[in-house]
Design a protein around this nucleic acid. Structure first.
Lengths: 354, 354
DNA sequence: TTGTAAGCGTTATCAA
DNA sequence: TTGATAACGCTTACAA
């Protein structure tokens, strides 16, 4: 028997209409509705017409879940958790992930953590609840053991840009420490000894590693770290700008700055420009317009595209059955001298150090 | 009866394990497996232990589809089709969409069309097959009737940045024509009469509208369009740069340029910089570093964030049951004078215009 | 051309 | 503490 008689129109308020409801209203069987919705050509046009009207009347929408469930379709979806899509670094990374996913017939759910670790936890478990096959994460949190149960349930994780802690999964990293060291050494080579460091809070692994590189470079040149010159805590262009302004107002301002990412670079450039100061600058991360500023910006460039691509490839290898031990891939950096990093200290005493 | 005896381990190769399979291996009922997976605290630890082992052994993964179906949850997913995530304009737009979606408990599947209309068609139907509740589209194609069947099936569409053709759906538009007109008028006001137009191919509605605005401004100033000064067809920074180089080598080069988007602006700036020319520039679309170039760039700024936000809000209103006639929302533009648009024509006759 | 019945993999109900 | 059984909304056999 059909439910034709048992579902009065009025009962539909609240929940959304199903094929059953449509069938009841149109006075046909559920299967006929299915045929119409799927454009199977066997249906009598007049029957189809009645069904169409009922669909309209009830605002019927097909439930894709039920459909795919019956069809035995796997989700073919991966998650990507990043900080903020409006940052071109992550935009480029996301685009690369999407390219690889598309080639593997997968869709990408992109989710932004806003650098909030509790939000990250919530979002990751959301993704898993949705049944994604794998997740690419640029982690905001510092302890990732919460992913353990999901991993045991078969969800694959790949970490990007920052290392996993407490779990053992594939990771793509930038050699942040070496890159930063190289950038700062470049400044030292050009005669600087008072070199400031403008960065995100060190709570962040990337920032930390780049700070280590900064210290490495200073240490091997016999320069002591001057805490006045270290400004960490810039989470926006504006705060980086403020940090730089503060540096310029020091009794003994720096002659050079190393910035920890493109956001910080932009802020610092603004401040230097506004103060019409001549300060050398090397920034981590390349950015589109670095070449056409008054003084083109010397950068330590990394490759978000390559990072996304390699990460996604590793994920799909895992989803394809690869089961070896977890891997760590390093994406190289390169120093691109463009002018700002080659400015020499303002006509002062060269050879200040020991 | 349970299927305990009827499913030998070996039969599991191929399809992925279900709760039934786990139950069979652990020698418990399906419901008990469900309890363990969902961490319901009532299960005997030893039973749970056995189940956990079976889960591990079979690489069991919960099927999110079935779960949500049973729970009466819809997909809670929307699609976003854009051109290219690595373009900050779309990155910002996507971030805004994600914010609104998140507030509405929805996830966003982001997909890039690469400005390819057949790819767009394929991707949209992919999204619909996946059962997304709605789709936000920045269309690459010029005829959207192919979405009609999906609309009838209840999938909601919202168009962004470009108008739908052949279907009637909610749309968020930038007033491209008025914005471009205003930008070009700004140049005319500063004494220019030879104003070039550097743009994407006009096959694109945005480009077309901005070209109309360009012509509007010239027409109302009594200036004829000089085809030599119209360069459409730049799909990359490099090609825009080449276009500008070509313009500079004309017997009578332009004294000003209006660029149709940020990509074109960047290319044109590079060419002007390389040639050390003094050419006025107003660009459509703001970009991060526009303020800190040698000559800060005057732009007609639109607001991708606002566009994504309004579009997503409209989509969720529809998903929430709103069923009025389709709406067209316009996002305003504003002219931001920064320097490059206020350069006057090189030492020539001022007061050239009517 | 139309309809009946079974089943996709889960969770909810209720009984044991 | 555990389990049998019925949903969830749809598609697929197979009849009628």
């Amino acid at each position: 028997m059909t439910d034709a008689r048992s579902i009065p129109l009025s009962s539909l308020t609240g929940r959304s209409a199903t094929m059953r409801d449509v069938a009841a209203v149109a006075g046909v069987s559920l299967k006929t509705v299915s045929r119409v919705v799927n454009q199977e050509p066997v249906v009598d046009p007049r029957t189809a017409e009645r069904v169409e009207r009922a669909i309209e009347e009830l605002h019927y929408r097909r439930n894709g879940l039920a459909r795919n469930l019956r069809k035995g379709i796997r989700q073919l979806t991966v998650g990507l958790v990043i900080e903020d899509l409006s940052n071109p670094f992550y935009g480029t990374l996301a685009q690369a992930v999407e390219d690889v996913a598309d080639r593997n017939q997968h869709a990408v759910i992109v989710i932004s953590s806003r650098e909030d670790s509790s939000r990250e936890r919530r979002l990751v478990s959301e993704l898993v609840r949705r049944g994604v096959d794998g997740v690419l994460v640029v982690p905001a949190s510092r302890d990732h053991r919460y992913m353990e149960p999901d991993i045991r349930r078969g969800v694959r994780f790949v970490f990007l840009d920052r290392s996993p802690r407490g779990i053992d999964v594939d990771t793509v990293l930038i050699d942040n420490r070496a890159g930063a060291r190289r950038g700062v050494e470049h400044l030292i080579k050009h005669g600087h000894r008072r070199i400031a460091f403008v960065a995100d809070p060190l709570a962040n692994e990337t920032s930390e590693e780049r700070f280590r590189g900064y210290r490495d470079a200073l240490a091997s040149a016999g320069i002591a770290v001057d805490q006045d010159l270290v400004r960490t805590g810039s989470l926006s262009v504006e705060s980086a700008e403020a940090s730089m302004h503060a540096l310029l107002e020091l009794p003994q301002p720096p002659s050079a700055v190393f910035t920890q990412n493109n956001r910080n670079s932009v802020g610092v450039i603004r401040a230097i420009g506004a103060a019409r100061a001549s300060i050398a600058l090397v920034g981590f991360d390349d950015f589109d317009l670095a070449t056409m500023l008054p003084v083109p910006v010397t950068v330590v460039a990394n490759d978000p595209d390559e990072m996304g691509r390699r990460g996604a490839e590793m994920l799909f290898e895992r989803l394809g059955g690869e089961s070896g031990p977890s891997r760590r891939v390093f994406i190289g950096t390169r120093l691109i001298p463009r002018g700002s990093g080659e400015i020499r200290p303002a006509g002062v005493k060269t050879g200040n150090g020991p």
